[in-house]
């Protein structure tokens, strides 16, 4: 039977997950809760914490806030300031290979290499999302009317991908063949990078704000509907012309967060009323993990072994769900 260990946090849980296998909860109040053998609360930002992203190797956490700082937090609670943009609200971060990070505010994105070198990338309209490619130092920026692909270590023109509208979140498929964006409209857009073929993924009643690639990148699970919508990416043409899986269908609440299991074809699904379940791709078999609470689930993440799941809500609820006693 799954068991829940509740965690007391004082605000909106922006991101929860694991660094060095230690559960963390990054909270909008500016605090990060680290639940190692000696639990501690680190005040990462003076004002609010706006974004948190595990490092590429999952050993540390990069956070940003409305104090304009980008901090690196280690699992032992020590931290250092990586960069600062006074008076800017830094609300987007991405972690890349070899200690590189990217962050953005307004229309500008920056890449900071491990040695502290910074490069600036300006766009005509607001940056909506950042993602590093799985291999090589390549940064994708979601923007108004499309996406831009930069090679931060090389001179030369970026690759521009166009599609009308405001593009927000952005993610590469784990094999690097596809780039997907979540839009201001209730839809996803995608490009097959080999030939920039467009892909439309529509039909959502709400914006897609959470997504997760399944093991080996065969499916992209998404929030924004009354079920977790999983688009197949295994064939040559990706999701085009295919029907997505719909898991955890409910009539009374939308899915607000998803996290695919790291080893099995199973997805954890969080709903707008605070309920959390997990569901198996193959046969829709469901297990209830948490009953409804006070507010929408804002973040869900598995540990590496797939035995523990952390969750957080917009209404200061958080916990660690263990699948084994």
């Amino acid at each position: 039977m799954p068991t829940i260990a509740p965690v007391e946090v004082g605000g909106f849980v922006v991101r929860a997950g694991f660094i060095n296998d230690i559960p963390y909860f990054a909270v909008g109040t500016g605090e990060v809760h680290l639940l190692g053998s000696q639990p501690q609360i680190v005040k990462a930002h003076k004002g609010g914490l706006l974004a948190a992203e595990p490092s590429f190797d999952q050993t540390g956490l990069v956070t940003s806030g409305d104090d304009g700082k980008i901090n690196a937090l280690s699992s032992d609670g020590s931290s250092q300031v990586l960069a600062e943009r006074p008076r800017k609200w830094i609300d987007l971060i991405a972690s890349g290979p070899n200690g590189a990070i990217a962050f953005a505010s307004g229309r500008t994105a920056w890449v900071r290499l491990k040695d502290g070198t910074e490069k600036e990338f300006s766009h005509e309209r607001a940056v909506g999302g950042l993602a590093f490619a799985p291999k090589g130092l390549r940064l994708a920026v979601a923007r108004y009317d499309g996406a831009t692909l930069w090679w931060p270590n090389l001179e030369g023109q970026p690759t521009e991908l166009s599609w009308k509208g405001a593009h927000l979140g952005i993610s590469f498929s784990p094999d690097g063949k596809y780039l997907v964006t979540a839009m201001q409209e209730n839809a996803l857009h995608g490009w097959r990078l080999s030939d920039t073929q467009d892909m439309r993924m529509t039909g959502y009643p709400a914006k897609v704000k959470s997504w997760s690639w399944s093991q080996k990148g065969k499916h992209l699970a998404t929030s924004g509907a009354n079920a977790a919508i999983l688009w197949p990416f295994s064939g040559k043409t990706g999701p085009m012309g295919q029907t997505p899986l719909q898991l955890g269908v409910r009539s009374d609440a939308l899915v607000s967060a998803v996290a695919c299991h790291p080893r099995e074809d199973v997805v954890a699904i969080g709903y707008a009323d605070g309920m959390v379940i997990m569901s198996r791709f193959e046969d829709n078999a469901e297990v209830l993990l948490r009953r409804a609470g006070r507010g929408p689930i804002s973040t869900l993440e598995w540990d590496k072994a797939g035995l523990r799941l952390v969750f957080g809500s917009e209404e200061a609820e958080a916990g660690i769900i263990a699948l084994q006693d």
């Binding site: 922006v14 909008g28 004002g47 609010g48 509208g165």
Partner: peptide, 28 residues
Amino acid sequence: FEMNNGCICCTVRGDLIRTVQNLMKRRG
């Protein structure tokens, strides 16, 4: 932001959407 819904006067302020969402992380 122009909305892709065929409505010619349906524009919104993308920066406000983003800022309000960020503020909601500090709701209290």
